[in-house]
Design a protein around this nucleic acid. Structure first.
Lengths: 227, 227
DNA sequence: TATTGTCAGATCGTTGAACAATCCTCAAAC
DNA sequence: GTTTGAGGATTGTTCAACGATCTGACAATA
């Protein structure tokens, strides 16, 4: 992928940062890059050339380097000394570890689901169902991810929320390598609905078991994609 | 605290970075600052003036700003726009959240303790006991932290290890505000020994209960320090 | 043909200077 | 005592420059 294509994909974004946003230039630039990575416009393995990106974002090289540091810690970018900065490629060990973390967080969290927590989960499932009816499969994926982030947030811990955000962002990178996101997301939508229905019935252990099954199946599916 | 005192505390560290270490200058600088924070030489609330620190570390301002970004994501520093960079002050909500994460990780992890995992825990307790005999209370604290990091590592997850490292580093910041570290660490040494003894006897549920009690007591003690 | 060595160009890593913006402190005025 | 304004310090960002490193192309050699 030529660096000029990276610039092309960034140049169509007008510089939105204004002084009213209490956001520094490195943080703004990191945000733009983060969005583009999440949307799959910058793909795993892509090199982000400083020269090209600084021109595309209209910031100085030093500012961009600060932004790169911000994103490296989010595990979205990978710094390779003297080689440059790349969108991260996850390997199968990453996938396994990501699911280990998800089980560690989501399985106890689901047991904490009550009233408005269940409402939040329900809302995300509903958003996914509407998107599926309209064939917007990327939006189905987004709603699925938000559903799982909402499960993690049932623990009421800012640090867990941040970790879940990061872990699910990493998974997003995995999905961008998939040819057919629909085949991945579609079977899980009714399973998410089933989890919420069990919670509505007060059957938290049942929901917990369904979630465990989902995590195992999703992991198997992604791991097999690496063979 | 005057900025000149910050420089004084950094100037006595000779520049150790050589070309043989595949480490960039921002990463080196971040490492030096990280060590100083962990050792309590830079305290929570201290402002790290760019001018002073760049002179102390003998790097350029831009390089230092990259290092600051690296440390901000580790939650050791806090960027305040237009105000500068400060060593983080944790409040009581931080402490509560840190212990929530520790329970989430350490309590399931201890149930995984087997053979060489137990050996590793035992070794850290032993190091703490030797340090206590010699009255080296900061080293007792370090061994205690390593003991708990080793518990987390029983899960065999690189991301969990990284999170535990960060969370325990945050706790380190809390300890630096304490007048009497001995009174904090000393009672927990025999409790760590008791946890390991239960594991040696194959009594993992017993060790789990002891760990839960420890985490509750330690949290209470730290939370009460904020009143 | 395959391998090795050399060189040029591109890119990254870092430095330093400069300017604008923001914040903080202090003195003067009310 | 409170408010305002000025000055200095510091931060935020840009730009240019130079050195280091890497990559790819090409020539020479076996």
């Amino acid at each position: 992928m030529a660096a000029s294509n990276v610039v092309g994909r960034l140049a169509d974004l007008a510089r939105e940062r204004t002084r009213r946003q209490r956001s520094s230039a490195p943080e703004w630039a990191a945000g733009v890059l983060r969005d583009r990575i999440m949307l799959g416009e910058l793909l795993p393995g892509d090199q982000l050339s400083e020269k090209a990106i600084m021109e595309g974002l209209d910031v100085s090289r030093n500012t961009l380097r600060e932004a790169f540091r911000l994103l490296a810690h989010e595990k979205l970018l990978e710094h390779k000394l003297n080689r440059g900065v790349f969108v991260r490629l996850l390997d199968v060990h990453d996938v396994v570890d990501v699911f280990k973390i998800r089980r560690l967080i989501e399985c106890p969290a689901i047991l904490e689901a009550r009233g408005d927590g269940i409402d939040r989960l329900d809302a995300e499932v509903r958003i996914g169902e509407v998107a599926a009816e309209q064939g917007r499969w990327q939006d189905v994926g987004t709603a699925n991810i938000k559903f799982h982030k909402a499960i993690g947030s049932l623990l009421g811990s800012p640090r867990v929320d941040e970790l879940m955000g990061q872990v699910l962002a990493e998974l997003r990178l995995v999905f961008h390598g998939m040819d057919d996101p629909r085949s991945f997301y579609e079977p899980y939508l009714p399973r998410n609905r089933e989890i919420v229905d069990h919670l509505r019935d007060g059957d938290r252990p049942g929901a917990h078991n369904l979630l465990e099954d989902y995590l195992a199946d999703a992991e198997d599916q992604l791991v097999s994609a690496y063979r």
